[in-house]
Amino acid sequence: MKKKLAFMMVLIFGLSVALMSCVTIKVKPTAANLKNPVIKLESFEVPQYDGYWYISNKVKPTKGKADNRGAPLPLSFLFSVKNPNAYPILLEGFTFTVAFDKDFDLVTLNNNDSYWIPAGKTTHVRATTMITTRSGLLSLLVTGGFKLKERKWSPWDALERWWKGVPEASVPVTVKEGSFAFSANGVTKVIAFEATYP
């Protein structure tokens, strides 16, 4: 009986090691062998469009409270991320700023989600955010006042141009100051990223 018990324990241990070896990576990630993942902005779209409008708090709404409210403009970015390594890597999150007409920063987006990317594979990651003509106006007035003055644009000129032009891809949308954070077995690497669409 004791022999049988010992045999069973050895068998279970052996099986466990064998099973774990199936999921254990073959090449151990190190700072030296972790190659930079390749990030591309594949596409950009406005997933839902509600036109260009702005309602000030002086206008009484049909329902709800009066406030300064603006047309929403959802912005959806599709990135491809290729893992050139011989082991899986974890995309731990990313941050980037969206600018219209290259110079005007409208929103900085932070994504806290994690994505595993298998060895040698490419995955797609979608990041969606939303701005409104109200948030755009405030951002412009605080950060873009002098730049608008240089271009001889009023904030309203800029907002109308963007709310009408961005959905039709006639205004360049830039993803800038991007940082994509990756890790593999405790080794971390943050990759800078910038791209303009179209």
Binding site: D105, L106, T108, I131, S135, L138, S139, V142
Partner: peptide, 13 residues
Amino acid sequence: TTGATSDVGKDYA
């Protein structure tokens, strides 16, 4: 990082 104080809020974030 979007609104009326984003000129300083973004760098802080």
